[in-house]
C-alpha cells in the first residue's frame, strides 16, 4: 500500500501530512510533484492544505490546471482513493470532483481553532472505523471554508448521504453558533457519489498525535487504511 502527497507551489501542509503517514503510521509515502505526469502507483493520493499559487485568484483555482491533475482525475474515475484536506478540498471543488464552491468565512477573518465535528456517515472508505454521531475534535485553519452549492445539488447531497462531517457544538448538536464559517448545512466534509473522493476543511493530520492535543483525526487515516487493506467498510 503506497501513499502520495501532492506538492503544489504554495502547499504548506505537505510535510505535516507526509509525517503522519510515514512516521506515525509507518506507511510507504512519497511526495508527488504537481508538474509530473505520474501518480507513481499510489493507492491513496492526498491533496494537502496550504495556499496553492497563493490562492491569489480563488482558493485552489490555479492548482487544478497542474499537469498532475489530469492523472488525478483519471485515477479518481477509476475508483482510486483521493483525500483533499483544506486547500486540497478547494482544489477538488475547482476540479469538479466534488460539487460546490467555497466562499469567504462569514466573519471575513482567517480562522484557526479546534472545532467539533459530527461524524454523519460511517459507511465510507474514509470513516468506516468511526461510530455514527461521534463528535470529533479537529482543528480548522482557513479563510475560505464557507461551503456553498445550488439548492438542487444540496438536496442530492443530503439524499445520498454524502455529507460526511458537519460542524456541531460540544454535544453534537448542529447549530448556527457552531457553524464557524457559515457553511450551508454546517458542511465540513463531503464525499463523491462513488465514495472514493473525500474533501474536508478540518485538518486530520493536525489531530493524529497525543502530544498535539487530539488524536481524533486518526479516524480518517485508520478507516482508509482499513478499507484499502480489506476492501470492506465493515
Amino acid at each position: 500500500m503506497k501513499c502520495g502527497v501532492v506538492i503544489f507551489p504554495g502547499s504548506n501542509c505537505d510535510f505535516d501530512t507526509h509525517h503522519v503517514l510515514k512516521n506515525v503510521y509507518g506507511r510507504d509515502t512519497v511526495f508527488l510533484w504537481h508538474k509530473d505526469h505520474s501518480l507513481h502507483n499510489c493507492d491513496l493520493v492526498i491533496l494537502p492544505g496550504g495556499f496553492s499559487y497563493g490562492d491569489y485568484l480563488r482558493s485552489g483555482a490555479i492548482a487544478r490546471f497542474s499537469p498532475l491533475m489530469q492523472e488525478l482525475q483519471e485515477f479518481a474515475d477509476r475508483g482510486g482513493m483521493v483525500l483533499g484536506i483544506c486547500n486540497g478540498f478547494q482544489v477538488l471543488l475547482e476540479l469538479g470532483l466534488l460539487p460546490g464552491a467555497m466562499l469567504r468565512n462569514k466573519n471575513l477573518k482567517f480562522l484557526c481553532r479546534h472545532v467539533h465535528l459530527s461524524l454523519e456517515n460511517t459507511a465510507t472508505p474514509f470513516t468506516n472505523r468511526g461510530e455514527k454521531g461521534r463528535i470529533l475534535h479537529i482543528p480548522i485553519a482557513h479563510f475560505d471554508g464557507n461551503y456553498y452549492t445550488d439548492p438542487a445539488t444540496l438536496i442530492q447531497l443530503k439524499q445520498n448521504n454524502r455529507i460526511v462531517f458537519r460542524y456541531c457544538d460540544t454535544d453534537g448538536k448542529i447549530t448556527d453558533e457552531s457553524n464557524v464559517n457559515g457553511s450551508m448545512e454546517n458542511i465540513a466534509g463531503l464525499i463523491n457519489k462513488d465514495g472514493n473522493v473525500l474533501g474536508m476543511m478540518p485538518h486530520p493530520e493536525r489531530a493524529s498525535e497525543a502530544i498535539l492535543g487530539s488524536e481524533d483525526g486518526r479516524v480518517v487515516f485508520d478507516s482508509v487504511f482499513h478499507y484499502l487493506k480489506t476492501g470492506s467498510l465493515q
Partner: peptide
C-alpha cells in the same frame, strides 16, 4: 488575535 493566525501548521505546536 491569535485565532486569525495559523498557529498549528507544521504540527509542532504543543501549547496553543
Amino acid at each position: 488575535i491569535y485565532r486569525q493566525y495559523d498557529h498549528m501548521v507544521q504540527t509542532n505546536t504543543v501549547f496553543l
